Simulated scan of single mutants.
Amino acid sequence: MQKMEREATRRVGADESIFCAAYSEFAPGVLSYLRSRGVEDPEGLTQDVFLALFPRLGDVRGGIKGVKSLVFSIAHARYVDEHRRRLKAPPTIDYDPAQDRRCSSSAEDQLLEMEASGNVKDLLNGLQHDQQEVIALRIVADLSVETTAEIMGKTPGAIKQLQRRALCRLRKLRPLGEDPS
């Protein structure tokens, strides 16, 4: 039994040294191959190639040429898989909020516009005292719900409700699309 364990340990050690040599020798070429094929993540796919290589090292025949052939066969197969995956995936388009016609100013944005124009005090006067405080702390001062709750001596849930009610009230006071100036 000990003889089999020693043999297995020796073989794994040999596989590791072959693997390190193969990686040093072929990784730059695999990376270049994958880059030239337009792969989205050539570094990641190169790592996948060598992860797939390691368990198969014991079965390789033909010395260094056999290892090279196996490495590039795996690289090509990974490229084909990635290419097929991209063909099946729906196209992605970067989102540009400036181009989105569906967007409208939120009550927070309107309040910040009012702040910039100096009319925020007038707008806040239409709210209850607690609502004014929540808006001033959450939106104008940009504090977290937890910090605002601590300052006001309320629970985070109460702060969220106060903010929601205040923003609804602001929308009624100043309908969307109304010019702040």
Rank of each mutant, 00 (worst) to 15 (best):
A14C: 05
D15A: 13
D15P: 01
D15H: 07
D15R: 03
S17R: 14
S17F: 01
I18A: 07
I18C: 04
I18K: 01
I18Q: 04
I18D: 00
F19D: 02
F19Q: 03
C20N: 10
C20A: 13
A22T: 06
E25A: 15
E25P: 00
E25V: 08
F26Y: 15
P28G: 11
P28M: 13
P28D: 11
V30H: 03
V30G: 03
L31I: 12
L31Y: 12
L31S: 11
Y33S: 08
Y33F: 15
L34G: 02
R35E: 15
S36W: 04
G38F: 02
G38S: 02
V39E: 04
V39H: 01
E40C: 13
E40P: 12
E40Y: 10
E40F: 11
D41Y: 15
D41N: 15
D41V: 15
P42V: 04
P42C: 08
E43L: 15
E43A: 15
G44N: 12
G44Q: 13
L45D: 06
L45V: 15
L45C: 13
L45S: 09
T46M: 11
T46I: 09
Q47R: 13
D48H: 06
V49K: 01
V49E: 00
V49D: 05
L51K: 09
L51F: 06
L51I: 13
A52W: 01
A52M: 05
A52S: 08
L53F: 05
P55M: 10
P55C: 08
P55E: 09
P55F: 08
R56T: 10
R56D: 08
R56A: 13
G58H: 09
G58D: 09
D59C: 12
D59H: 14
V60E: 08
G62P: 01
G63S: 08
G63R: 06
G63N: 07
G63Q: 05
I64G: 02
K65F: 02
K65R: 12
K65H: 07
K65S: 09
G66Q: 08
G66Y: 06
V67P: 00
V67K: 00
V67T: 07
K68G: 12
K68S: 10
S69W: 09
S69M: 14
S69Q: 14
L70Q: 03
L70A: 08
V71W: 01
F72E: 07
